[in-house]
Design a protein around this nucleic acid. Structure first.
Lengths: 330, 330
DNA sequence: CAAAAATGCGGTAACGTTTGCGCAAACAGC
DNA sequence: GCTGTTTGCGCAAACGTTACCGCATTTTTG
């Protein structure tokens, strides 16, 4: 009961603290008898190592911090889960921070985590360049990276290729392609998707690609439903089949439901391709571009651990392939 | 640059470490001049407190651990996010652990966290009673709690009331009610829902309530689709309108999609009520029983912090009200 | 069998912080 | 101007570990 520290085990076993420490960490020299006796006593008394003290001595608690806009978002949740599990395999714990994409909250988390509490940081999709005073903390970025220096390490999906696949898929199925984006078009991932769409559509003979920008967040797109459908209905008169490439599954699923409500047949009149492949997409049977979240997480985690082990990392940009998941909306 | 510890600030300012510590923590006695000078130097040199050392001295790192089956599940994600945000408000960080409902993994996490790394634990829906050797760690439970002692603190939705609401809603709309559960019927939350359904249905004059147990996990229910629909179709011949109360939204949404595939009209022939109110339910326009995840998280977090502050907690069971969200499947 | 090497173990400093205690100087009261 | 109180600050111990170093004792070597 009263056993708290290595000192108690030392006292109970008759050995010194250094010997107990060596046995418990399996380092240095000690006899088999000594080991057995100390281990036995430690177990009997439910000794558990004080990680704080160890961390102080070693200068590390073996904890990783992960900054994520919102754990409730299925795409982020998938990444965070995989990272956490990967780190735990390697004996690291993970502190999760919901930043709400709010720069102020981000700064607060970073300030707190910088105080020697985490060994490194995984940063997903930050609003802006991260404050410089965390410059000492090893960091890997997911999706987007600040323009701090040219050796920041980033992993992201091949957004450009995803858009190319989506655009070609729509044109192949005889649709006149439209892209529907949200207000976050300054995000590099959105930029790449727009570029991929535009270039592909042009290469298929359409000179003026139509891109509708909702100018809202993905989950507030319902506010501009009427405006969007006015445009869609107008286009439907000019083209037999329309194909919407939505910036993500949330937007795609909303448009899908709304189209049905408007009496537009999917996919006969209107095909829809989303992006992400979240559970909603699979429940709604939405065709979408799948992001390989497991791979993004794996690459990021291993890179961070490599930095911590001071191993060299040759690449700095890691681009993860995406794939088309064909379902019932195309 | 080379400034690492309070010692450096002491050296640079000409004061002792104790004075610096007192100023930085705003405790004890010091003059205004001293304060200004020390603060200035600390800021100039970007001093940041070493939380590990502080933690060692104070015996706490101000970190909470949260054990959750799967952060990817929307219901759990909502709770975890709220808890994390609440703890951060109170200056605690949160370590998230995905246990996959696996007892072995749970034990590993608990063993690791027990080593003085967290101040307390939030445990969501554990598979079994938690290993006894963590008995020293303050813990609150969500959804279900092990039968360790009768003062374990638990917060959960009013599952019984939810089932009563769902059953009445279905009967009110002229449906012959059926309940569809998964294999986890030993879970107390499922038990309560089944009880609520059974008793309500009986009180409405149906003596032999029909409960179909898929005997699979929620996301593997597709394996027994044929069996389930055979039964549903048979019942459809005996009753004009059927109403399914599904154990959760995942099951409900699958049944919804499958029913449409089978050519059954929803809600004309078959009404469906889910449980949870996850994003999928709202996307699919599923009628469901909403769990108040914010409230569950708030109650649990405040209770844990109360325990840490050694405040008395009068109740041990916290039951959070649920509500009917009527959408298009009823 | 002497010298050299290996083994087993303990003493102790250090990690960076907080905090009780004590002491000198300044200030207050009468 | 003497006593009593307050103020400002430093010393040093302590939190629980780890790891360097050193010292017997034992084992190996030639």
């Amino acid at each position: 009961m009263a056993v708290k520290s290595i000192k108690d085990i030392a006292r109970l076993s008759g050995f010194s603290v250094s010997t107990v420490s060596r046995v418990l960490n399996n380092t240095g020299r000690f006899s088999d008898q000594t080991r057995d006796k100390i281990i036995k006593i430690a177990k009997e008394n439910h000794y558990s190592q004080n990680i704080i003290a160890k961390g102080m001595r070693k200068g590390s608690l073996a904890i990783i911090g992960i900054l994520v806009p919102d754990i409730t978002n299925a795409y982020y949740a998938a990444i965070v889960k995989k990272c956490e599990q990967y780190f735990f395999e390697k004996d690291y714990l993970t502190i999760v921070c919901n930043t709400e994409r709010n720069a102020e909250i981000e700064e607060k988390y970073i300030a707190k985590l910088s105080n020697h509490i985490v060994d490194g940081l995984v940063v997903i999709s930050t609003q802006r360049a991260i404050s410089k005073n965390r410059a000492d903390l090893p960091t890997v970025f997911i999706d987007r990276s600040p323009k701090l220096s040219n050796n920041t390490i980033t992993a992201s999906s091949d957004n450009y290729a995803g858009a190319v696949i989506a655009a070609n898929h729509l044109v192949d199925r005889g649709c006149y392609p439209i892209m529907l984006t949200n207000k976050n078009n300054e995000f590099s991932s959105n930029k790449s998707r727009i570029l991929g769409f535009t270039q592909t559509v042009k290469s298929r003979g359409i000179n003026k690609p139509i891109i509708i920008n909702s100018k809202t967040n993905s989950d507030e797109i319902y506010l501009v439903k009427d405006k969007i459908f006015k445009q869609i209905k107008k286009l439907l008169k000019e083209h037999q089949k329309l194909g919407i490439f939505a910036i993500n599954d949330n937007v795609a699923s909303y448009i899908y439901q709304a189209a049905i409500g408007e009496g537009i047949r999917v996919p006969e009149q209107l095909s829809i391709v989303g992006f992400d492949d979240t559970p909603v997409a699979s429940k709604l049977q939405l065709t979408t571009i799948r992001q390989n979240t497991s791979e993004i997480a794996r690459v990021s985690s291993t890179n961070l651990l490599k930095i911590l082990k001071r191993e060299d990392i040759l690449e700095h940009k890691f681009t993860i392939p995406v794939s088309l998941v064909k379902r019932k909306t195309t």
